[in-house]
């Protein structure tokens, strides 16, 4: 009894540690202050200043950039990852092993090393600064996850589906688009979601590869630049709160649905 109580207390303390900063920021996002006071009482002014402050323009650009880069690079990563997963699956054992080991590298490597190695590469071969570098870099760290999401599904497919399509006169291309793709669609989508999220969330690789002369910022690099000069202005509290609620809400819902589905499946069996 006593042990159970202390176990629960311990869990609650750790949860409080994890969520206290988030809750404090959300509460004070309604105070329109950066020093945790209530000069005007409860107000939505901080939220309003997201669009009215003198940084609104730069902020909007940063958000648009973040979304464009995430959309483009996750799309490229998903297409390339899916197509190459189909190819990798049919490679010989050693070639496949090698390809997958190299594919694994961006995942295990520390982000900073990946970031500077790409930066040195871009500088050495004088790639134009800007979107091109950023999108290549994002595709490079997103595609491995797409492959890891698609490849296991492909390997669990019965090869006779593909062969049957060929026997019935389909070209390899048609066999893949009409037979294989529909079967692996769910894992392609989850690979894409992962790639999109990772690209949205990235800071280190973007910061190091965005270049200095272009002035391109994503939300995280703009936050970094702005917070380094001075503290956080009230509108950042509002943005943080929106992100907290959005991210936590979406991830929680997605996972709860997943858990419920698993339970239902178990019950059916």
């Amino acid at each position: 009894m006593v042990k159970k109580f202390f176990e629960k207390l311990f869990l609650i303390v750790i949860l409080a540690f994890l969520y206290a900063p988030i809750i404090i920021i959300i509460v004070y996002s309604f105070s329109n202050s950066s020093n945790f006071t209530w000069p005007d009482g409860f107000t939505f002014e901080a939220y309003r200043s997201i669009v009215t402050s003198d940084k609104a323009e730069a902020l909007k650009d940063a958000i648009v950039n973040t979304l464009i880069i995430a959309a483009v690079s996750s799309a490229i990563a998903t297409v390339m990852g899916t197509i190459s997963a189909i190819g990798i699956q049919t490679l010989g054992r050693r070639a496949k092993r090698l390809a997958l080991d190299v594919n694994q590298f961006p995942i295990i490597n520390s982000e900073i090393v990946m970031a500077v190695s790409l930066m040195v590469f871009f500088v050495t071969f004088s790639f134009p600064e800007g979107y091109l570098r950023l999108i290549i870099a994002h595709v490079a760290f997103c595609t491995p996850y797409v492959i890891l999401s698609v490849l296991p599904k492909l390997e669990s497919l019965d090869p006779s589906f593909y062969e049957a399509a060929l026997d019935l006169g389909a070209s390899p291309f048609k066999a893949i688009t009409k037979v294989v793709f529909p079967l692996i669609a769910p894992s392609i989508i989850s690979g894409w979601v992962l790639a999109f999220t990772l690209s949205l969330d990235d800071f280190i690789i973007t910061q190091i590869n965005k270049g200095t002369s272009t002035g391109i910022n994503t939300l995280s690099t703009y936050l970094y630049a702005d917070a380094r000069v001075q503290g956080l202005e009230p509108f950042w509290f509002a943005i943080f709160s929106i992100i907290f609620v959005l991210v936590l809400g979406v991830v929680l819902t997605v996972n709860l649905v997943k858990i419920r589905r698993q339970k239902e499946r178990k019950n059916e069996i």
Partner: peptide
């Protein structure tokens, strides 16, 4: 299908 892996 092997060829599909070459671009990546």
């Amino acid at each position: 299908r092997k060829v599909f892996s070459y671009p990546y």
